[in-house]
Amino acid sequence: MKPRTSMVILFLLPASLFYLALFLVPAAWAFYYSAFDWSGFSDTMTFVGAGNFIRLLTEDPVFWRSFGNTLKIIFVGGFFTFSLAFLLAVLLNSGIKGKKVFRALIFMPNVIATIALTTLWAFAIYSPRSGILPNFFKLIGWEAGTKFLWMSPEHVFWSMLIAIVWINVGYFVVLILAGMDGIPLEFYEAAQLGRLSIHYGVWKTPAHLPVGLRHCHWRDDAPADCCSQYRCAPPDEARIPAILGENP
């Protein structure tokens, strides 16, 4: 065995053993138990095969309700989480001052225990007595908003979904920002030009772009008046890599 391979095994072993003992083995046991009618305490276990699963799928309304809620969290929550994460990432990447501070603030919910976060939302934000939201509505004199019960049975799911989006959005902002940081600035410029060439009717070239890029002849079908207000150059695609700082 090569020294490198044994080193890899040595370093992987502790984590793998923990994972095996604390996750895979219990999961396998749970699957085994699922084939029995058993309270978890009694000495007798009656084998029922897939009976528990059939009961779960055909007789248990709570299962379907919770499954439906899970889907809503994934798709509705996921949609808003990603949309908001992209929006925030773009804003943070737009050259805003204090980017790192904002990024840390947005990411912060990820390092706080979920129980503390849900308590924060239930007590400090939504509570009819002490919550920020009802009290803010009171302050601005919006009666209906004051009386809205965020945590009542009919509203609690959507109220907490907002909290879930808030909790998760920071994680994806950081991932997307990391991705954005890896893109060279020139690509943005090129992308902007690309956009300009497509929407040549409404373009305005930002002043900070290299002069050489300020032409509208990337496409042969550009209308003649496209060049009327800007210095034009003939189509010269061979020049673009050089302008972008790439080796031809």
């Binding site: 239930a122 939504y126 509570s127 009819p128 019960l149 945590m151 009542s152």
Partner: peptide, 9 residues
């Protein structure tokens, strides 16, 4: 308003 309470509010 009790409908909007969570224990122990």
């Amino acid at each position: 308003v009790s409908k909007g309470y969570k224990w122990p509010q």
